[in-house]
Design a protein around this nucleic acid. Sequence first.
DNA 1: TCCGCATATACCTGTCATCGGTATATACTT
DNA 2: AAGTATATACCGATGACAGGTATATGCGGA
Lengths: 115, 115
Amino acid sequence: MTEPPLREPTFLVLTALAAEPQHGYAVLEDVARMTDGRVRLRAGTLYAALDRLRVDGLIEVDREEVVQSRLRRYYRLTGVGERRLAEETVRLRSQATIAERRLRSRQTEIGGAPA
Amino acid sequence: MTEPPLREPTFLVLTALAAEPQHGYAVLEDVARMTDGRVRLRAGTLYAALDRLRVDGLIEVDREEVVQSRLRRYYRLTGVGERRLAEETVRLRSQATIAERRLRSRQTEIGGAPA
DNA sequence: TCCGCATATACCTGTCATCGGTATATACTT
DNA sequence: AAGTATATACCGATGACAGGTATATGCGGA
């Protein structure tokens, strides 16, 4: 059996960690920036996703810092996580391509009745 | 509040109906073909998705046929469904682009330690 | 002839990621 | 003193999907 597809929040968390290690809260802001504010991760969603991705071996703890008495736990992609994200990216792109082709072919229909 | 993203099976059902109306079982086969056999929709998933999409106004019943004593219910995209699929396509593509850019920037890292 | 498979729709139960909210604690701002 | 930003963590409810079953017909193989 193949892995189920990553859902949007999880995909975006992985993407946030792709360039460089980040701590949880920074991921939260990064995802919001990446999506032009469209996706605002819930705290519950974020930390649950981080735990799950860590247990699944897609990310791992990079280091921990204490800034202004507050803990920052940095995560980084593992090799497995990097490959997984690359695969997902291919999947997204290919599905977008298929859908676009079909939507275009639709416009060419003769006598196409408006739905 | 914005609509939640379409999940993979639902997106693929919409895509299957984008070019031309199809009945449920044909969608099943079409999705399998589209994804090179990777996604095999469960009957429960398919018909639940068709019901949901119809209730939400993204698809509608095109016509019904009886072939070899078996009912075939054809569905087609509505205008709303067409727009929605086009939006989702843009989203998929942009997320794929962001992720790819980050994955590439990673390879350029100096002294990049293998994860 | 009987079994299994393809076709076709429909329902039901369980799982699990996500949503929305809350808790806890510190620091900065008004 | 109150509110906001930072930062992690837990909890209950929701809802899409997986997996399976039910129902019915037609076809091909053993």
